[in-house]
Design a binder for these strands. Sequence first.
DNA 1: TTCTCTGCAAACGCTTTGCACGGAT
DNA 2: ATCCGTGCAAAGCGTTTGCAGAGAA
Lengths: 148, 148
Amino acid sequence: MVEKLASIENAKTFLNDVGINPSYQRLRILDYLINNLCHPTVDMIYSELIREIPTLSKTTVYNTLNLFQKRGIILGLTIDESEVRYESNVVPHAHFKCERCGEIIDVHVCHPILTKGFVNNHKIHEGHLYLKGVCKDCINHDSNGGQK
Amino acid sequence: MVEKLASIENAKTFLNDVGINPSYQRLRILDYLINNLCHPTVDMIYSELIREIPTLSKTTVYNTLNLFQKRGIILGLTIDESEVRYESNVVPHAHFKCERCGEIIDVHVCHPILTKGFVNNHKIHEGHLYLKGVCKDCINHDSNGGQK
DNA sequence: TTCTCTGCAAACGCTTTGCACGGAT
DNA sequence: ATCCGTGCAAAGCGTTTGCAGAGAA
């Protein structure tokens, strides 16, 4: 409980710093993103928060995520064309999606191209490295004959 | 004209090789992709081809692109969440999208991570490196005060 | 009061699905 | 006759828009 309140306070400071009015819904959505690094979809965020905020509208989730993204405090990932996923970690890193279990995992690769600079005289503002394959857990399950 | 026929023949051989029945529509769509390396959207392909194939349906374009993609002879790019772009060049390379003019440009970066292998014990099947920024042409226009 | 945020309902646009027709074997 | 591809129309679905009410300053 104490941790939760502290977490919300943390989100509040965060929003104040970037000049976004820290409404209750915005705070809760940002807080959710900070504490759930699983790269949730709009639907995941909405489904979780509606349990504690019964009046929450999906429109608000959309509006809020778009606002956060525009201000650069969260990132939208399109590693899969059928869904956008969000994360509050804006430090450049790569993403891996397991084709078996669907999980998206952060991968820290050091490559200068992911940061700002020039490539072939084009100015780079942002870079996304998306990897797809089979995660180590799914590989292990396979080698155990599908056992846990 | 001679070149065009040769190009279609080329596409035909291509489809036969991967075991796809080379119908007229499929041939024309593949041929379009091979000869237009601008990473077109579904709509671009449809709008261009409808001029020469008046009965063409957008459903057929969707079906065909999905079929090609499933068979691995084309790639779908989601560098921009609002549209899928297609290309027939399946050799691993990066993509740069200019936020100013919208153009998508191939970038050849040599990085082992873009090819198959292992990262943090996760098996990689495919990788996409998407870069966004301002292309060199748009930078030049800027420094000319917007002149051509 | 004034301004902003929220949330419902409707609109929107892209993509897929269902199905019947037609051409090829 | 059978199979497969095409294309129309409709459905589906995620997202955005319009707008009125609520809440904060």
